[in-house]
């Protein structure tokens, strides 16, 4: 098995992604857990940028997740402003159980994908641009795309209906 520069980059980034993902689960402090998730999202964007050659998706990943959704998370965490002790008491080790479950699922995925991740990055797939992406979205995947937008709209409506008792 030959190891080239891209493999080194991949394993470095993948290691960072896994480490920060574990941090999200195991760091008990909610703000630092959120920070770990932020690191995870940014490194994933770097992975898209460097290995997949998909700058558009990398940038949108940062704009949408790091720029908006993580700010929402932090907003809620800060609004609750949990003081020390409130987030540490737990009798049933749910975290551990979920952790084991997720690890099992992950191992299963690795088992299925083993030896195939190189196939994810054929030379021709690099430089997948905005035009190609939008063309795919608005022709081949138009139905799925529109359904997802309806789903998001319904979710937003539901959130408003739940939050406002009297409309």
């Amino acid at each position: 098995m030959m190891i080239n520069a891209w493999d080194v980059v991949f394993f470095f980034l993948a290691g960072l992604i896994l480490l920060s993902a574990l941090g999200v689960v195991f760091i008990r402090h909610p703000v630092y857990s959120a920070l770990s998730l932020l690191v995870n999202l940014c490194v994933t964007a770097i992975l898209y940028l460097s290995l997949m050659g998909a700058p558009f998706i990398a940038m949108v990943q940062i704009i949408v997740y790091a720029g908006a959704i993580m700010v929402f998370f932090l907003f809620v965490i800060m609004l609750m402003n949990l003081s020390k002790g409130e987030y540490q008491e737990r009798t049933v080790p749910w975290r551990l159980l979920f952790g084991v479950g997720a690890a099992a699922l992950f191992a299963f995925q690795i088992f299925i994908l083993a030896g195939e991740w190189r196939g994810v990055l054929p030379p021709g797939a690099r430089g997948f641009g905005v035009k190609a992406l939008s063309h795919l979205i608005f022709t081949r995947y138009i139905l799925a795309f529109e359904l997802v937008s309806v789903l998001i709209f319904v979710a937003a409506l539901g959130a408003v209906a739940l939050a406002k008792k009297k409309l």
Binding site: P55, F56, M59, V60, I62, I63, A66, G67, A68, V71, G129, V130
Partner: peptide
């Protein structure tokens, strides 16, 4: 070729 998106992405860190 994604300069504008890059600008939006980095400026989103200022918050």
């Amino acid at each position: 070729n994604v300069a504008l998106l890059y600008l939006l992405a980095v400026s989103s860190f200022s918050v």
